[in-house]
């Protein structure tokens, strides 16, 4: 196990897992408390369309998927602010359009696409130096934006009071939407498109069960998001199973535990 950590690709996998786990579980707190859990799924499929377009154009998929998913996320937010269709409907429409586009792009591409499978189910061992740099930059950005937590939390608690106190609530909504999209895209390689939403939702939901305050919920969520990666990756390495599945199952186990333990 320890000598395995000498392997560069495993080091990259671990670092990627920790970064993505921490980011997703941090933003997940807002997502869960605002009842936007479906957003993770919607954006994962937008990332899928972006990746498919990147593969079709023979570009690095990340560079296509990032603007695509961020654009979809901002568009979802725009529709949510402007109609009373309900968040699930607004997200559902973009979800469907993204899948339709993704499938279309895939079919336009000649021949079999083995790399597409890697994106669907994740392949943490193929994380590159570039991927790590992008994750690191996003993590740095989110860390620098730490003071925004208070504003997001305030508007999550009571939007009207936040507005009455002259908070630029709308601006912070778009910022949150953009950041979630970024995190979803860089998580694709680590957990795969089909499992990203779990990374965002499960740690925060677990933390919600165990917390009396929103700050405690945030801290516990991040702790779960980060620390579930280590046993998850170890299990993946030892039993040769997909890392994304293993990590998500560890998180689910913690959720079940919290459900039985909470007072």
């Amino acid at each position: 196990m320890m000598e395995a950590l000498q392997l560069p690709f495993l080091q990259r996998a671990l670092l990627a897992g920790l970064l993505v786990g921490g980011l997703a579980s941090y933003l997940g707190v807002m997502v869960v408390q605002r009842r936007l859990s479906f957003l993770g799924d919607g954006l994962a499929h937008a990332a899928f369309a972006g990746v498919a377009l990147g593969l079709l154009l023979h570009e690095e998929p990340l560079w296509v998927a990032i603007p695509f998913a961020v654009g979809v996320s901002l568009a979802i937010t725009w529709v949510r602010e402007r109609s009373n269709l309900g968040d699930d409907t607004a997200i559902g429409i973009f979800f469907a359009v993204s899948v339709a586009l993704g499938v279309l792009f895939m079919s336009l591409r000649q021949g079999f696409a083995p790399d597409a499978v890697a994106y669907l189910f994740g392949s943490i061992l193929t994380v590159t130096q570039t991927d790590l740099w992008v994750m690191g930059l996003i993590a740095l950005g989110v860390a620098l934006l730490a003071p925004v937590w208070s504003h997001w939390a305030y508007a999550t608690f009571d939007r009207e009071l936040a507005l009455a106190d002259r908070q630029p609530v709308l601006l912070y909504d778009y910022l949150l939407a953009g950041l979630i999209a970024l995190v979803v895209v860089v998580s694709v390689k680590v957990v795969g498109i089909v499992l990203i939403a779990a990374f965002i939702v499960i740690p925060a939901a677990t933390a919600r069960l165990l917390s009396r305050t929103f700050s405690a919920m945030t801290v516990i969520s991040v702790a779960i998001g980060v620390f579930s990666v280590i046993p998850g990756l170890a299990a993946a390495y030892l039993f040769d199973v997909p890392a994304g599945s293993a990590i998500v199952l560890v998180q689910a186990l913690l959720f079940a535990l919290a459900l039985t333990l909470r007072r």
Partner: peptide, 24 residues
């Protein structure tokens, strides 16, 4: 008007009025 499911203590609600932000 407000969301009862938000995890918060009464004291925090009062402090939020003081700070105009949510207290960490």
């Amino acid at each position: 008007g407000f969301d009862r499911s938000f995890p918060a203590l009464a004291l925090e609600v009062v402090v939020s009025g003081l700070r105009r932000r949510w207290p960490f």
